[in-house]
């Protein structure tokens, strides 16, 4: 089976650790990786792509030194190889400007506010994952327990 990755990027290790812990429900189905800068996550995506695996979801914090979350996500959005990657912005303090940019140029799929709850995070991941899997036509059977049921149902129904 192809490996699916969820990448988290934030400069604060405590946030990354919290994300890692909260995403542990997905560990049997996905590979979770954390990065502490935008450059690192882009490099890692490159590496994953080389190995023929998939980056399914990128969760980026907005406020980071160097590249901001929106900048990272915009880079991903503009790379045709990663067009299906689901992009989530994590933020506690976003200006109007950030938000507009995130939607217009970074093709944001979801916006999670800090502090997040595990439930909302899991729901979001599961929905984004399902969309990615359906988009890419990856076998969904093994991932069933972590997929978003309504999204999957609708796609399967459409196949007749």
């Amino acid at each position: 089976m192809d490996k699916l990755y969820v990448l988290c990027v934030d400069d604060q290790p405590e946030v990354l650790n919290a994300l890692e812990n909260d995403l542990s429900d997905f560990e049997n189905y996905l590979l979770i990786e954390v990065c502490d800068s935008g450059n690192e996550v882009l490099e890692l995506m490159e590496q994953i792509d080389t190995e023929g695996d998939y980056t399914a979801i990128v969760i980026a914090d907005q406020v980071m030194p160097g590249m901001t979350g929106v900048e990272v996500l915009t880079r991903i959005e503009n790379d045709p190889r990663f067009s299906a990657v689901r992009k989530i912005l994590l933020t506690g303090l976003a200006t109007h400007q950030d938000t507009i940019q995130a939607i217009n140029s970074a093709g944001l799929d979801h916006y999670i506010q800090k502090p997040w709850t595990r439930e909302i995070l899991n729901k979001t991941i599961s929905k984004c994952l399902t969309e990615f899997v359906l988009d890419k036509g990856i076998e969904y059977e093994d991932l069933l327990p972590v997929l978003d049921q309504p999204v999957l149902y609708e796609a399967l129904r459409k196949k007749g």
């Binding site: 290790p13 990354l16 650790n17 990786e33 954390v34 990065c35 502490d36 690192e40 890692l44």
Partner: peptide, 10 residues
């Protein structure tokens, strides 16, 4: 606490 960067850990 955490001593390694995510890159080093990887």
């Amino acid at each position: 606490g955490l001593q390694l960067s995510s890159r080093e850990a990887r």
